[in-house]
């Protein structure tokens, strides 16, 4: 196996304290997205449109929180892998329940 040290593996900057400026910018983006999702809730997009927009904005916000506040962007492969496992396995659950319910 290569010289990569699995014991201490990270994305390179995980041992640096988080930057105040970056965190402020992320917070501002999160607050802006919150206002956007509330505002769009009052625009007529149809039920499907609302679900898509609501999920997309919530997903973007969750991505910001995980990528920066939860420093997933600075992590190595393993934390990203397990973060992915959580959502992938949830997708398994959703997929098969949907297959059943839609064709029942």
């Amino acid at each position: 196996m290569s010289a990569r040290d699995e014991r201490r593996e990270d994305g390179g900057r995980a041992l640096e304290p988080p930057s105040v400026v970056t965190s402020l910018v992320v917070l501002a983006a999160l607050l802006a997205l919150t206002l956007a999702t509330v505002a769009l809730a009052y625009v007529d997009l149809g039920t499907v449109g609302h679900v898509v927009v609501g999920l997309a904005i919530a997903g973007a916000k969750a991505g910001l929180v995980m990528g920066f506040f939860m420093h997933l962007g600075h992590e190595g492969r393993l934390p990203r892998l397990f973060a992915g496992f959580g959502f992938t396995w949830l997708a398994f659950l959703v997929l098969f329940v949907v297959i059943d319910v839609v064709t029942r």
Partner: peptide
């Protein structure tokens, strides 16, 4: 220690997602 705690927490987060 940091790498282990981080991995442990992400495993925990994965189970919270479910």
């Amino acid at each position: 220690q940091r790498a282990a705690v981080s991995l442990g927490m992400w495993v925990f987060i994965a189970q919270e997602v479910l």
